[in-house]
Amino acid sequence: MTITKSYLNKVMHKRKSVRKYDANYKIPQAELKELLTEATTAPSSSNLQPWRFLVIQDATVKKELRQIANNQEQIETASAIIAVLGDTEMYKNVEEIYTKNFEQGYMDEATKNSMIENSLKLYPNLPKEILKNIATFDAGLISMQIMLLAKDMGYDTVTMGGFNKEAFAKHFELADHLVPIVLIAIGKAAVPAYGSSRLALKDIVKFI
């Protein structure tokens, strides 16, 4: 059996990192909301969904952000910048999350109570660095979904980890428990993206 060239497969291969955008194109906010709603179907550790977003569309704010983000052109020319943040206090939503799971029939009450109890025993006692690592891992999962969904909607993206995270947190007055992880530029490509090669499977995989 071979992998069928499905629609998802085609979207995956069409998605490329784009750094040149049509600065005049503006994505409607309603579409950005739809995109992020769909992206939140991504998996996360204990389903605690530690991702938070700051969506930057204002031209003046993007100009300010460009100075924090190594003067990258796409910060200003993309229709929006989606800043993916990690919440290291994600466990504070555990009761809401598992109560909703129970109410929607995804688990019984005993499982709900057990998950809440175990999560509140574990997560608040973890070092902040571990909580940050968890949030960063989960942010990677939802960031990929954002980019694939964006391509499916006819938009292009590029992720940026090269920015001053301390300066970002200070500029946007983030609470201590919110950690900037990655920026995603989204908009309409002005020029085609470059292609990129991949390492051979034999060099990166070992079957045992």
Rank of each mutant, 00 (worst) to 15 (best):
V94E: 02
L54K: 07
V11W: 00
T88N: 06
N125R: 06
E95I: 14
V18F: 01
N47A: 05
L126I: 08
L54A: 15
T60I: 13
S44P: 00
T88R: 02
D108V: 11
L35P: 01
L122N: 09
Y106E: 13
K10M: 05
L8I: 13
E95R: 09
K14H: 03
S17I: 06
Y91V: 03
A135S: 12
K132Q: 06
K128M: 03
L35C: 06
L122T: 13
G105Y: 01
I134W: 02
Q72P: 06
K92G: 09
N24D: 12
S44E: 05
T41I: 13
D87K: 09
E76G: 08
D138A: 06
I97Y: 01
Q72A: 15
L35T: 02
R15T: 08
S79F: 10
R19F: 06
Y25I: 11
K128S: 05
A39D: 03
E64G: 10
E96T: 12
E31D: 15
M90L: 15
A39E: 02
D87F: 12
R15L: 08
I82N: 10
Y123G: 04
E64K: 14
L8Q: 04
A80G: 13
K14W: 03
K16H: 06
K33S: 12
K10P: 00
K132A: 04
M107G: 05
M90D: 07
K62N: 10
P127I: 04
F137V: 11
L48V: 03
S114R: 13
P43Y: 07
R66G: 04
D22E: 12
A39P: 01
K63F: 09
N70Q: 09
V18D: 00
T37E: 12
N93Q: 14
D22H: 05
I56Q: 02
F137N: 02
G86V: 09
R15S: 08
E129T: 01
N71S: 15
N24Y: 10
I97S: 04
K20E: 11
Q104V: 10
N24C: 13
A42C: 09
K20H: 07
K62Y: 07
K92C: 09
E34K: 11
E76R: 07
F102P: 03
K20V: 09
V18L: 08
Y21V: 09
I116T: 03
E117H: 11
G86S: 13
E95Q: 14
T111V: 15
E31M: 15
Q57L: 15
A83Q: 07
I81S: 10
L126Q: 03
M115P: 00
D138F: 03
A80T: 09
F137M: 06
V84M: 08
P127A: 04
N9I: 06
N47I: 02
E129C: 00
N9L: 10
A39N: 01
L65V: 11
A110F: 11
P43L: 11
L8R: 02
K128I: 03
L85N: 04
T40P: 00
D108I: 10
I68R: 01
N47V: 02
N24L: 14
Q74A: 12
Y106H: 14
T60Q: 15
K10C: 02
L48Q: 01
E109T: 07
Q49F: 05
N113M: 07
Q57A: 15
E109H: 05
F53C: 14
R15Y: 04
I68Q: 08
A83I: 13
L36Q: 05
K26R: 07
A83W: 04
F137Q: 03
D58M: 08
R66C: 12
P28S: 10
N47D: 04
